[in-house]
Design a binder for these strands. Structure first.
Lengths: 211, 211
DNA sequence: TGTACATCAGTGAACGCGCGTTCACTGATGTAC
DNA sequence: TGTACATCAGTGAACGCGCGTTCACTGATGTAC
């Protein structure tokens, strides 16, 4: 509910001050990405999509790369939420459930996923929140690994298993779309099954503790 | 040895006709990538680096994307050669040897590696030569898998193991550089050891045939 | 409750830049006779 | 062996474009008194 004004304006007229342009810009960026892909993600395009002038974003972000960082961070948050939701449904919270959810997110938001890792590469890593944060993705993987039988006391081993799983999921996410794999995907009855098969060859409880 | 000309030119004067500009452009692109990164890889920059006018490349490539495709293909060839060389040294031709060589290539040529996969994503897959070709990378992985104990008769299973390994190597290659992992890398005594640890958790003979 | 004023968050025009691509051209090469 | 000519592989100027960023500005908001 906004304050009423003395003179009625055109119904959709945005007030001069936006209210939460920072957030609006990030949402606009996601729409641009989905609609036009990562190449089209310019600061100007985002401003255009949000309905503001090209100079407006500079009141909320230092420069373009600062905006990209925020977009990537929002993406990693969304990824974490997706995995969380998948785990909530699967009572056993299996690694493969999480892996499939991970890859699905990447496949459903390919351009955003691309930006997330492009930014990470430039920033020498993913957001700290994702890696170390309490509700972050890595923590969830850790817990699933422990449930799968990895000794939680051996910290180095546990971490290596998590990183190994995450890297695999990332590699799969980037490559499932390759045309060469499509016949096999059909044979297996869909992308999710294909991903399960790949993940199954990577994370399988029996050998996890033998290292 | 070039034909001598009646009037002596400045020593480095390139003849009007280049001879093999197509190849020279690809090499120039690799230099640009190494020196300035993937963002700087414009058609004009490549022409500049090769010492020709911006219009010259159009006699050898349909457009920019055609040039990029050729660069990526050359990159995949070089990757294949690197793996081949590593296998030649290691008499057992272990998976981990190949994996480490793969990741080393990606780390030594980060910008080229990026372009290789960017192009692959746009082209819906890596070059056929790499995937299906006789001396291509996938074939080498196949053979190593067979040596490691995967039943060569079960074609689907064999292929899934190869894809799984390749995806993992790719994921690792993209993420080893992340700052979060650096302490662990030091602890393990270097990047190659870290990569070996990760790969060891992914490809380990005992369970390969149990599927 | 009103008023003066600082601050915030927009505008829109302008800047210089490098890009991909096209064009009419020209120099060099190779082939037919 | 020489010459005419088609073809090939370059040049360099020009095009229009969208970009990131800056600037002086202005409208709206909130605070002090």
């Amino acid at each position: 509910m906004t304050k009423s004004v003395a003179v009625a304006e055109a119904p959709e007229a945005r007030p001069y001050h936006h209210g939460d342009l920072r957030r609006a810009l990030i949402l606009a960026a996601e729409r641009v990405l989905e609609r036009e892909g990562p190449q089209a993600l310019s600061l100007r395009a985002v401003a255009r999509e949000a309905g503001v002038s090209p100079a407006a974003p500079y009141h909320h972000f230092k420069d373009k790369s600062d905006l990209l960082t925020a977009i990537a961070e929002a993406g990693f948050d969304a990824l974490g939420d997706t995995i969380k939701a998948a785990v909530a449904v699967d009572s056993e919270a299996k690694m493969s459930t999480m892996g499939v959810a991970y890859v699905r997110f990447a496949r459903d938001n390919p351009a955003l996923y691309r930006v997330m890792y492009d930014v990470s590469r430039n920033a020498d890593g993913m957001p700290d929140k994702t890696h170390d944060g309490e509700g972050g993705g890595f923590r969830m993987v850790e817990q699933a690994m422990i449930r799968a039988g990895v000794d939680p006391g051996d910290d180095l081993n546990l971490k290596l298993w998590c990183i190994s799983a995450w890297c695999s999921a990332h590699g799969i996410a980037e490559m499932v779309g390759f045309a060469q794999f499509q016949p096999m995907i059909e044979e297996l009855g869909g992308e999710d099954r294909f991903v399960e098969e790949l993940l199954g060859r990577i994370c399988h409880a029996p050998s996890m503790d033998t290292h």
